[in-house]
């Protein structure tokens, strides 16, 4: 990276926002240097509504205590769309989060934001990536109406586009740094419900486990979602979780990945640029992943963020970081995704 084109060093380091699906993951995140930990309740009010995952009131209270003792903040994701007839459930989740003393809630639905802003004016609001706000004007809409303090950018913008957004909004901008790569605009994908009846927007999960079938055939391992064949894996292939946008399908006789290969997003090499343009926080994906994953990613990104903040111009991605991240990535490739324009 050419030092001459970089603007002045940022006054504040970027925050590291790490996932926690379980209390041990929360501890792993806090112990390894997360600034913020985000998590969800055990129901469809969050977009990682999977069996056995997430927090009840007691484990959340303990988690908040633990994080606060060590100087970290806890953000609760209430980032699904309240479904007709069950508004009270989402409303109650906002109230619970507020009464437990979380540091912010991450919300997608405009109606729920309106409620939270009115009922809990002191509660800090973040706009979820599921809110699909892809321009500064959309983000400013949520700022003007509900006073959101931070917005998570959907993984669709190039670095240049993200930079323009940041320059034109008073809202802190959080971007995805690492993890499973969303191909579709978050909050705008119904592929999962088309095959299974459940999607992130409606039920808080993509490709629900109960709709997945693995079948070992003589020649291949098959994965199906809601009966739809997503992929067939030969002996040498590496199977991935059967989400539709990672499937192999046939278009005009060509069998390939029409949407995306199983890859992970990894933006370590962009850190100096992201810091220079004023990104407030870097988000790590993976509330459904294990404490080992959280520990590894948090440790690597803490080190990288500190190194970048100390000396942006001399920042180099260490091979050891990439090795550690490759060891826990889905698929064997990493990509810059939409940050790098030719990906589109």
């Amino acid at each position: 990276m050419n030092a001459a084109v970089l603007p002045q060093p940022a006054a504040r380091p970027m925050k590291l926002v790490c996932p926690a699906g379980t209390p041990p993951a929360l501890k792993a995140a806090v112990d390894n240097g997360a600034d913020d930990v985000y998590l969800g309740f055990k129901d469809e009010t969050n977009a990682r509504n999977f069996a056995g995952l997430n927090f009840d009131d007691r484990s959340l209270r303990e988690g908040i205590d633990y994080a606060h003792r060590k100087g970290a903040q806890v953000l609760v994701a209430l980032n699904t769309y309240p479904q007709p007839g069950s508004w009270r459930k989402w409303q109650a989740a906002v109230n619970r989060a507020a009464s437990l003393g979380v540091d912010a809630i991450i919300v997608a639905d405009a109606g729920l934001l309106a409620y939270a802003a009115k009922a809990h004016p002191q509660l800090r609001l973040h706009l979820s990536v599921q809110g699909s706000a892809t321009s500064h004007e959309a983000i400013n809409f949520y700022h003007e109406r509900f006073g959101i303090k931070r917005a998570v950018l959907p993984r669709v913008l190039s670095v240049e586009q993200a930079e323009k957004v940041i320059a034109r909004t008073p809202v802190e901008i959080e971007v995805f740094g690492f993890g499973s790569l969303s191909i579709m605009v978050e909050g705008r994908c119904a592929l999962s419900s088309y095959a299974t009846g459940e999607s992130p927007n409606t039920h808080g999960g993509c490709s629900p486990a109960k709709s997945i079938r693995w079948q070992q055939r003589p020649d291949a391992l098959e994965s199906r979602l809601g009966g739809v064949l997503i992929d067939r894996f030969g002996a040498e292939d590496h199977p991935g979780y059967p989400t539709l946008c990672r499937g192999r399908f046939v278009v005009n006789g060509d069998t390939y990945y029409p949407f995306e290969e199983p890859t992970s997003l990894n933006t370590l090499e962009l850190l100096p640029r992201l810091q220079a343009m004023g990104v407030a926080a870097i988000k790590i994906e993976g509330r459904q992943r294990s404490p080992v994953y959280v520990e590894t990613v948090t440790r690597v990104w803490r080190e990288a963020l500190d190194a970048c903040f100390r000396d942006r111009e001399r920042f180099r991605v260490k091979p050891a970081w990439q090795d550690a991240l490759a060891g826990i990535s889905e698929g064997h490739q990493c990509t810059l995704g939409a940050y790098h324009r030719p990906w589109k």
Binding site: A190, C245, V251, P258, F259, W343
Partner: peptide
């Protein structure tokens, strides 16, 4: 049904 939208163009990718 329009089910999803992306930054990526899948017709171009094809």
């Amino acid at each position: 049904l329009p089910l999803a939208v992306s930054a990526r163009c899948f017709t171009a990718r094809y």
